[in-house]
C-alpha cells in the first residue's frame, strides 16, 4: 500500500531582500537549518524550499511533526552568505494553497499556527 507523505509548509519572510534568490540561498538556508538541528534532525525533517515569493519570502516544506524544529532553527539563523538577517515564520499549513491566501492579503493580521 502506497501512503502519501504528509508534509507541513511554512511561509517564511526574510528581514532583508535576498537578491538573486535560488540555489545560492537555498543551500545556505538549508545549511543553516542543518547546523541548528543536526544531521539526524535534518534527515527526519527533510526540509526543502519549494517556492520563492518575491525577493524575501519563501515556502519551506518539512515532514509532518518536524515543523517546530524548522521554526526554531530559522529563529537562530542570523547570518546567510555574510549578510546579517532574520527569518520570520509567518504561518504553517498542511497545504501550500492555504499559505497562498496569506500572500494575497499582505499586511493583514496573519493567523498564528
Amino acid at each position: 500500500m502506497i501512503t502519501k507523505p504528509k508534509n507541513r509548509y511554512i511561509l517564511v519572510e526574510s528581514s532583508v531582500p535576498l537578491e538573486g534568490r535560488g540555489r545560492t540561498y537555498d543551500s545556505a538556508i538549508l545549511g543553516g537549518v542543518a547546523a541548528e538541528i543536526g544531521s539526524l534532525g535534518f534527515v527526519k525533517a527533510n526540509p526543502r524550499i519549494v517556492r520563492w515569493i518575491g525577493d524575501n519570502r519563501f515556502i519551506i516544506r518539512s515532514n509532518r511533526g518536524t515543523e517546530r524544529d524548522i521554526v526554531l532553527a530559522l529563529s537562530f539563523i542570523k547570518r546567510i552568505n555574510g549578510r546579517d538577517l532574520g527569518f520570520y515564520t509567518i504561518q504553517t499549513s498542511g497545504t501550500i494553497r492555504k499559505l497562498g491566501s496569506v500572500r494575497r492579503r499582505p499586511g493583514s493580521l496573519a493567523k498564528v499556527a
Partner: peptide
C-alpha cells in the same frame, strides 16, 4: 534591537517552549 533579532509570535512561542 534590529529587524534581525525580531521574532514572529510563532517563533516566540517555540523559543519559549525550548
Amino acid at each position: 534591537d534590529s529587524e534581525s533579532s525580531l521574532l514572529s509570535v510563532n517563533q516566540l512561542r517555540e523559543v519559549g517552549r525550548l
